[in-house]
Amino acid sequence: MRAFTYERATSPVQAAAAAAANPDAKFIAGGTNLLDLMKLEIETPAHLIDVNGLGLDTIEATSEGGLRIGALVRNTDLAADERVRRDYGVLSRAILAGASGQLRNRATTAGNLLQRTRCPYFYDTAQPCNKRQPGSGCSAIGGFSRQLGIVGTSEACIATNPSDMAVAMRVLDATVETVKPDATTRRIPVAEFHRLPGDTPQIETVLERGEFITAVTLPAPVGGKHLYRKVRDRASYAFALVSVAAVIQQDGTGRIAVGGVAHKPWRVEAAESELPRGAKVAAERLLAGATPTHENAFKVPLVERTLGSVLDEARS
């Protein structure tokens, strides 16, 4: 871990301004991903801005009938919130399927959205990785890629986004609220928040320099059955091979998003219109153009079968 300086932010705008002023600065909240990466010198900030003292840790009702979740609401608290459990069950379920109790106690809403990939080549600084070291190449292509992406990948990167929470946020049409160094704010639909790797896999979100996440808002509840199915080798404390977040209405219509397959939570609205026709058709639409590797080709049937199982459960 490289040496860094440290400050405690006094307000969101101040935090944003401080981050903009120092190009090597990072915000730190839960720290559960950032410190992990700093120890390996995958992240090498020269300055840390500790935002834990900023509040932003409440969940409030919005005038539109939804919820506004403070950026620093811990994953445990978000999953346990009565309103979230009742009206946005898919979100509670997704969060609880991720990490461990210890990690969820510290990890924050904003931090979860900004988790970096678990690609093992990203994690080994001796190996070429375009995300960690732009232009060095992608070791995962042709390497150990069982865990990695099958859709929306590029020749530069086949990493996946490891977040469970983000998959649920995507299916709920959440919006990310930010503040910029000049105190202006913006609202970014979560659909547009994460980027595909393209030829710049090091750029993972649309955030600008210094831009600071203050909250995530959920629109008014849409009802339906909320399901999150996470498929993995061990029963807990593991990243998804594939996950499916679903909100299914009684008439069989609904929304689905898939995790573990792409650089971002994967939702294809065109696939959702096929839901009443069943998992096979919907999954075909969802994964149209997929380019799996030999090692992760199993994710294609796995998505279809998991989706089928989720739809069965929704009907039961």
């Binding site: 093992p120 150990f144 061990r234 807990s236 404390y237």
Partner: peptide
């Protein structure tokens, strides 16, 4: 060995 940590090399947890 590519998966050279305890996140990549999975051993059983309580739930297993």
């Amino acid at each position: 060995f590519v998966n050279h940590d305890l996140a990549g090399y999975e051993v059983p947890v309580h739930a297993d």
